[in-house]
Computed example of a mutant assay.
Amino acid sequence: MKHRYLGNSGLKISEIAYGNWLTHGSQVEADAAKACVRAALDHGISTFDTADVYANTAAESVLGEALVGERRESLEILTKVYWPTGPKGHNDSGLSAKHIRESIDASLVRLRTEYVDLYQAHRFDTETPLEETMQAFADVVRSGKALYIGVSEWTAEQIREGHALAKELGIRLISNQPQYSMIHRVIEGEVVPTCQELGLSQVVWSPIAQGILTGKYQPGQPLPEGSRAAHEEAGQSIAGRVNDDALLTAVQGLRPIAEELDLTMAQLAVAWVLQNDNVSAAIIGASRPEQVEENVAASGVVLEPEVMTRIDDVLGDHVASDPAITAKQAPQERPS
C-alpha cells in the first residue's frame, strides 16, 4: 500500500481509504462489516472514512467497534459533520458552533477514540456565518479532538474563503472530499486548481461511480441480484445511471483496456483517480472482503498517457465536467 501526504500537511494517509457510506449499519450486517475492515487492515489500508450521518450514527459505531484493539497511532480516522442526526431536531444539522461541538463529542464516543485525524464539513452551511463555523472548527482542533480540518463538496470559492479564515485562526484546512471518477470530473476545472494553489488535496469518494465502472450493470439487462442498484435504499442514488443504456454501453468499452493491463474494471477505475496528483486517497466501500482485496490492488498502478487518452475516447460525452454541478447539487438550506 502506498501512502501520500494529505494537502501540504505532514500527515500521510493510505492512497486507498476504506469508507462505510451505505454499508455499515444499513446495507451490510455488523459481522460482514467487521470482516471488511479486517480485510482493509490486512491489505495495508490505514485510513478509514466515515460520517455521523451514515446510517444515522450507526456506521461510526460499527467502525469504532471494528477497530478496537488496533494501535491508534497507526490509523487515520476521518469523520464528518453537517447532515441531520439523532431525532433530527432544529439544531441537529448544519455547521453552527452548537452542532459542531455536540457532534464531535458524540462521534468520538461512537468511534471509541480521543481524537480524529481529520474532521470535515460534510457540506457548506448557507445558514451559518462561515466565521462561526471556522471558529468552531478551531475550537475542536485546539481542544485536541481533531488534528486537521477538511471540507466535502465545497465550491472553489467556498474553499478559498474557508482557507483564509482557517489561516487567520491558526488551524489547517488541508483537504476536500468530492465525488470523482472517470465519469464525474467536475472538480478538475476549478476546485483542483484552487486546492493546488492553497495546499489542499482531495480525498475522493465513489471512484468506481457506485459500481457503474465495474461493468456489472449491463445495458438492457436486469440489475444483478445483491448489487447496490438493486438495494431499495442504496440504489436510489444511482437509479438514473443504471437506466442509461448509452452510458452503460460506453462503460463496457473500458473492458478491453482493463484486460490489456491485467486489471479488473474496478481496479482500472480506482487507479484512474489516483493518477491525479492532487488526489491523496480514493475511498472504497465494500460489502464483502473480496471487494477490498480487489480494489487495493490499484495502489501503485501507473496508467500511461496513451491509456488515459483511450479512456477519454471511450467515454466521450458521458463525462460530467461542468464545475457548476458542485453548487447545483449542494443544499440551499440546512436540511432537517
Rank of each mutant, 00 (worst) to 15 (best):
A138E: 07
T128Q: 02
R110I: 10
V116S: 03
T133I: 05
L108P: 04
D125I: 07
R112Y: 12
V141I: 00
G144W: 01
F137A: 07
L118I: 12
S143Q: 12
D125Y: 05
F124K: 06
V116I: 12
L108H: 10
L111M: 10
V109K: 13
Y115F: 14
S103Y: 13
T133W: 05
H122C: 12
G94M: 00
A136Y: 07
A138F: 01
S107Q: 05
F124G: 05
E102G: 13
S96I: 02
K98C: 00
L118A: 04
S103T: 10
I104C: 06
T113W: 05
T126A: 15
V141H: 00
R101P: 00
G144L: 07
M134C: 08
D125C: 05
H99V: 04
T133M: 07
V116T: 07
E114S: 06
G94D: 04
I104R: 03
T113S: 12
G94P: 01
L130N: 08
R123P: 00
E102T: 08
S107G: 04
R123D: 13
A136W: 01
I104G: 04
V109N: 10
D117Y: 05
D139C: 06
L130P: 13
F137W: 06
T113C: 09
Q135G: 10
D105M: 08
R142F: 08
P129T: 11
S143W: 11
F124N: 07
R101K: 12
T133K: 06
R142D: 13
L95V: 09
H99E: 08
G144Q: 00
T126C: 15
A136L: 10
P129M: 09
H122F: 12
Q135K: 14
R112N: 14
Q135C: 12
E102F: 07
Q135N: 14
T113K: 02
L130H: 13
S96W: 02
K145S: 03
T128K: 01
I100W: 06
G94L: 03
F137P: 09
E114A: 14
D117E: 15
R101H: 11
D105P: 13
Q135V: 00
H99S: 09
E114M: 03
Q135R: 09
R142T: 03
A106H: 02
T126E: 15
E131I: 11
R142Q: 10
P129V: 02
